[in-house]
Design a protein around this nucleic acid. Structure first.
Length: 615
RNA sequence: GGGGCCGUAGCUCAGUUUGGUUAGAGCACUCGACUGUCACUCGAGAGGUCGCGGGUUCGAGCCCCGUCGGCCCCGCCA
């Protein structure tokens, strides 16, 4: 029957509870002060006497009769004040009420005559005929408008953040925040059903030696000592495994004191998961199922299983460990085509052990000189020395480097007519990032990115370590990641060749999360820390508690952490994290609404044994 | 740390190219008119430290230097 039909709005409120629409006269949002949400009223409520409470969204005062759109969490409803059913003094007061005033109204839900229905409103088939109303929360003229005129742009983001209480009244943000709530609840249901325990871990914790900068909190009772806010609950969740909780999760707040971007906030939320007696496949299928549930919550169907790509292959084919595989445009090794040519640039690179790699742009021969120059600028900004460009037109190969190629070289390139070949010469450290950027940019300008396609991907077999400029090793994932047992022997001989039991999940070129199997053998953990240049005494000071715990009977365990804000952002169709976080920070990590950070009185500093530097 | 864009009425913007009288518009606000609107309509009015500081100039919203704030990107960060 029609009462059970879920409208879009009902789905936003809660798709798991159909009671809302099944029994229209009563609402689960009823309280002592109101009977329904304004936005939940439908034709099924016609005849119901209602009391509503909400904000004045817009008013239309026609003189003898007044219309007022009342807004609450559920949406908008038109309230009509008409001498036929409203006392004259009530109409008079209603005609003077200001925007964003909080009012309660009493009235009856009535069907609108056919010609007065508003198909653009969810509640457009009905209106509430007011018999009385009261102002319960007077409002100053809003600093930024909540109801905007058609085509009017949003206020500057600075103002939206400064007046966040008003900005959050907008339906877009309300929808995002409600979606985020539903994703959180879906996460909890999914993991709870599978026996995962939600366990909180400390916010005041120990500084982490590597990775990002910590947010630091001074200790009052221990002069000169500091807590740090967690960059992630990594060590705690391992300790929980060692304690035997077996399956843990947390929707955990994490803190990193680094410079920000549209998709990076100083405090952010991870879905943090850890389990014992598992292998990567356990975490991978658990994550696939969970993402399926989360995407379904936003109305999107995704594959049950995702493609997998080994790290080395991802780098070879795409130049990136999180490739966007919605489009092909794969990289290839063109070294053989340039070998033996008279081209000094490629010859010196090839002689030095580097390679010439690139990609073929179908139809790229028509790109203008200016457009290709732009691509080159991008390649250079990513570290390339330059961009070699060769295109095949009806008259043959063209481009500054074409003349250097021998006939067999040209053949080896394998360019089809109309194709543009773009190449970078150098070591893989140079060509990978440069060609990654080139590939993404070319996909954009050639419109190769499919609009409505989701390409999920697991990138597996990450290396354990990366060799830094100064020659030292550092972890690709983190120092607790287990090496692939097959590569244990490489740890001492060629550590940078050793693969880790680590995996990242990638959607359309964006990393959603990553994880690994952890080391549960204290001797191996010491060995890995040693390779990272952490000597025994430092290891004891920084990770002693973990090493001790590993020695106390640690099960094999591993897990994953997913960027919850980023997932929410993608599912909300937002382009900034700030639009899925109720109270976000600016790119300078400032909170404009409450004005944080701010100075503290000198006496507070003294109590914390702190002194600020003046220069 | 570096690069780019932006800052004019409560809000969204025009005016800056080429310095020149009193800095404009729409929405919001105030007052008035209007009995079926839905971005109601119509009339009148009030509203400005042109982000801030300095400089050039007879004269600066406009040019120059600095600075603050916001956004985007690189570095940084998984």
């Amino acid at each position: 029957m029609q009462l059970l039909n879920l409208t879009t709005l009902d789905a936003i409120l809660d798709p798991h509870d159909r009671a809302l629409t099944a029994t229209p006269p009563s609402s689960r949002f009823a309280t002592a002060k109101r009977s329904h949400l304004a936005g939940e009223l439908r034709a099924a409520h016609v005849g119901a006497k209602v009391i509503l409470g909400g904000w004045v969204h817009r008013t239309r005062n026609l003189g003898g009769i007044v219309f007022l759109d009342l807004r609450d969490r559920g949406g908008l409803v038109q309230v009509s004040f008409d001498p036929k059913w409203t006392p004259a003094d009530v109409i008079g007061r209603a005609g003077r009420v200001g925007l964003e005033t909080v009012i309660t109204i009493e009235g009856e839900v009535a069907a609108r005559p056919q010609e007065m229905r508003n198909p653009e409103m969810e509640t457009g088939d009905i209106e509430v005929r007011a018999t009385d109303f009261r102002i319960v929360g007077p409002a100053d003229t809003p600093a930024i408008p909540v109801a905007r005129g058609r085509g009017e742009k949003l206020p500057a983001e600075e103002l939206r953040l400064k007046h966040r209480n008003l900005d959050l009244r907008r339906s877009d943000l309300q929808r995002n925040i409600i979606l985020r709530h539903r994703l959180q609840q879906a996460t909890r249901r999914y993991l709870d059903e599978r026996g995962f325990l939600e366990i909180e871990t400390p916010i005041l914790t120990k500084p982490t030696p590597e990775g990002a900068r910590d947010y630091v909190v001074p200790s009052r009772v221990h002069p000169g000592e500091f807590y740090a806010l967690p960059q992630s609950p990594q060590l705690y969740k391992q300790l929980l495994m060692i304690s035997g909780f077996d399956r843990y999760f947390q929707i955990a707040r994490c803190f990193r004191d680094e410079d920000l971007r549209a998709d990076r906030q100083p405090e952010f939320t991870q879905i943090d998961i850890e389990a014992s007696f598992i292998e990567p496949d356990d975490i991978i299928s658990l994550t696939e199922g969970m993402l399926g549930v989360l995407f379904k919550e936003a109305g999107r169907e995704i594959p049950q299983h995702f493609e997998r790509l080994e790290y080395a292959e991802a780098m070879e084919r795409y130049g990136s460990d999180r490739p966007d595989v919605r489009y092909a445009l794969e990289l290839f090794d063109a070294s053989d085509a340039f070998r033996g040519s008279d081209f000094a640039v490629t010859n010196s690179v090839l002689a030095g052990g580097g390679r010439v790699r690139g990609l073929k742009v179908p139809g790229g021969a028509v790109l203008s000189r200016k457009e290709v120059d732009e691509i080159e600028a991008i390649a250079k900004s990513a570290g390339a020395g330059g961009l070699i460009r060769i295109k095949r037109t009806a008259s043959g190969l063209e481009g500054p480097a074409a003349k250097f190629l021998s006939e067999t070289g040209a053949e080896r390139l394998g360019l089809a007519e109309g194709e543009l070949g773009l190449f970078v010469a150098g070591s893989d450290y140079v060509t990978n990032p440069a060609l990654d950027r080139v590939r993404q940019h070319v996909a954009q300008i050639m419109s190769l990115v499919p609009e409505n396609k989701d390409s999920f991907l697991w990138v597996t077999d990450f290396p354990m370590f990366i060799r830094e400029q100064n020659g030292t090793l550092s972890s690709v994932h983190h120092p607790f990641t287990a090496p692939n047992p097959e590569d244990l022997s490489l740890l001492d001989s060629k550590p940078e060749r050793a693969r880790a039991l680590a995996y990242d999940v990638v959607l359309n070129g964006t990393e959603l999360g990553g994880g690994s199997i952890r080391i549960n053998d204290p001797a191996l953990q010491r060995r890995v820390l040693g390779l990272l240049g952490v000597d025994e005494s430092t290891a004891k000071a920084r990770f002693g508690f973990l090493l001790d715990a590993l020695s106390a009977g640690a099960p094999p365990h591993g897990g994953i952490a997913l960027g919850f804000d980023r997932i929410s952002m993608m599912l909300a169709g937002a382009t900034s994290l700030r639009d899925v976080i109720a109270f976000p920070k600016t790119t300078a990590a400032r909170a404009l609404f409450e004005d944080a950070p701010s100075v503290v009185p000198p006496e507070d500093l003294r109590e914390l044994h702190l002194q600020t530097m003046t220069s």
